[in-house]
């Protein structure tokens, strides 16, 4: 049997972080293959429920990334997203999800290298925490 590998859901905004991931790819940068990317129009589109649903359906961690403050294609989507994450954090604690399992970051379209770094860090963080106990067992 091979060693356990964390499976990470990466929700990336179309305008910055997804393009950042693209840049990392075309620049042939090395980063762990543990992320599964979902492209969304804006980080402001992320309902925290999506993050929970991800954890519930078998991901070990979730990375949400949007444009840097001030760079949002829709002007303020990322600020709104940040507020929602602030609400989500104490609730994650309530359901017993380790805080580092869910991470948020800002990555711009030019930051291919940063994308590789963030993914590496998140993967290592989650590897340390270990496999997720299936959130809300069987429910």
């Amino acid at each position: 049997m091979s060693e356990w590998q964390p499976k990470i859901l990466a929700i990336l905004c179309n305008w910055c972080s997804y393009a950042g991931a693209d840049l990392a790819g075309v620049s042939r940068m090395q980063y762990p293959p543990n992320v599964r990317v979902v492209r969304i129009p804006c980080s402001g589109r992320v309902d925290p429920l999506m993050i929970l649903k991800g954890l519930q359906s078998g991901f070990d961690g979730v990375l949400v990334s949007g444009c840097h403050p001030g760079d949002c294609h829709y002007i303020s989507g990322n600020f709104v997203a940040r507020r929602r994450f602030a609400v989500l954090k104490p609730l994650l604690e309530f359901v017993g999800v380790e805080p580092d399992r869910v991470q948020f970051s800002w990555i711009s379209a030019g930051e291919g290298e940063r994308f590789a770094q963030v993914v590496t860090k998140v993967t290592e963080d989650i590897r340390k925490i270990g496999p997720a106990k299936r959130l809300v067992k069987g429910a």
């Binding site: 507020r83 954090k89 963030v118």
Partner: peptide
Amino acid sequence: IPVMVFKEEEFSRFVDE
């Protein structure tokens, strides 16, 4: 309502900047 508004400088502790 808290999630309907925001300030530009806030909650940086929740985000990897």
